[in-house]
């Protein structure tokens, strides 16, 4: 497969994961807002923007609910907004549309056309939830279509790599911002004011229902951290994402009978082992913030090593090989 194609598949997948994540977090946020004091609205938007790694609008309107939704969802000048992410995913797909199945392309193209035409004011006044749900559904359908219609070969593995590296990074970032805000002291206990925020965190990772099945409705910070970081069965946990990332990388190596996966494997293997063996108490004792920063840094290293290996390699080494 062409290096450029791998690059586009990878970013198509990352951007779509990012759009899905943003849609879920904004949706949860709009829902929580209904039960919370309007005075705190501004600071919650600031936190949400930080979790999405999106700068605040330069107009400084982060107390205005509509303007924030517009900025995070519909504004093309925000490169991290939902419409921008879907546009970028679609543009990457367009560069490789002969490599993906026609079904995938048509679905993503339709999703792009429908969100691009959306009128933010109309949606805000009627059914923002429905719109955000349609974005999430669009992403879920795309994954289903991808799994059912594309060969599970090299290209497919690159799509998985992009998706799970983005997911691991996004959850780490979300957890970090949340714990930094609410869990500043070791003896912190969830109060009635904060309870909804913790539920929101779980919902933001599509994890509240599963959490109750595993731990009952008793929400504690340690359990939430353990669940979202180390659970191997929750699709939106860091550990799950890293597991799938490793599977995808193995799949890629098998599909291409490739050499030189060394550095990527080392970084990924180390990360995977840490998540397998680390205990949540130790992690928290050792400082969750640094742990999560380090996790994001390792994701970045995996990305770089992958690029050095198969996309951005120097020609001289390839010619002598």
């Amino acid at each position: 497969m062409l290096s450029r194609v791998a690059d586009s598949l990878y970013w198509m997948s990352r951007y779509l994961e990012r759009a899905e994540n943003a849609a879920r977090l904004i949706d949860v946020h709009l829902n929580l807002r209904l039960d919370q004091s309007p005075k705190l609205s501004g600071s919650r938007w600031v936190r949400l923007a930080a979790s999405l790694q999106t700068p605040l609008p330069s107009t400084g309107d982060h107390n205005d609910d509509f303007k924030m939704v517009d900025w995070l969802t519909f504004d093309f000048s925000n490169t991290n907004s939902i419409v921008s992410c879907i546009g970028a995913a679609r543009e990457n797909a367009r560069h490789v549309r002969e490599q993906i199945s026609s079904e995938m392309w048509e679905h993503l193209n339709q999703l792009h056309l429908s969100v691009k035409q959306a009128d933010s004011e109309v949606i805000w006044l009627s059914q923002p939830h429905q719109f955000l749900q349609s974005v999430k559904d669009g992403a879920y359908f795309f994954q289903g279509i991808t799994d059912s219609t594309m060969n599970h070969g090299e290209g497919w593995h690159f799509i998985q790599i992009g998706r799970y590296i983005e997911r691991a990074r996004l959850i780490a970032c979300l957890l970090d911002i949340h714990f930094t805000t609410f869990h500043q002291k070791p003896d912190y206990v969830i109060g009635s004011d904060d309870y909804l925020e913790w539920v929101g965190l779980l919902q933001g990772c599509a994890a509240f229902e599963s959490y109750r099945k595993v731990y009952t409705a008793d929400v504690t910070p340690i359990r939430v951290a353990e669940f979202l970081l180390l659970n191997t069965e929750l699709p939106h946990s860091v550990c799950f994402a890293i597991d799938r990332l490793q599977d995808a990388l193995n799949g890629y190596a098998e599909a291409t009978e490739t050499r030189k996966v060394g550095r990527v494997y080392r970084t990924l293997g180390r990360l995977r082992a840490a998540l397998d063996f680390d205990q949540i108490d130790e992690i928290i004792a050792g400082g969750l913030h640094n742990y999560l920063l380090d996790l994001q840094e390792q994701c970045a290293q995996i990305h770089e090593a992958l690029y050095k290996m198969c996309i951005d390699y120097p020609i001289e080494t390839a010619l002598t090989a």
Binding site: L2, S3, A6, R97, E98, E154, T258, L319
Partner: peptide, 28 residues
């Protein structure tokens, strides 16, 4: 897609010793 061949851009190709190569994930 119809032919099942790679769609390449100029930047995907390079010439070395009068031979044309494309840059793939598994080398040239």
């Amino acid at each position: 897609q119809l032919m099942g061949i790679e769609l390449v851009e100029g930047r995907d190709l390079l010439v070395h010793n009068n031979v044309v190569y494309m840059r793939t994930t598994a080398g040239l």
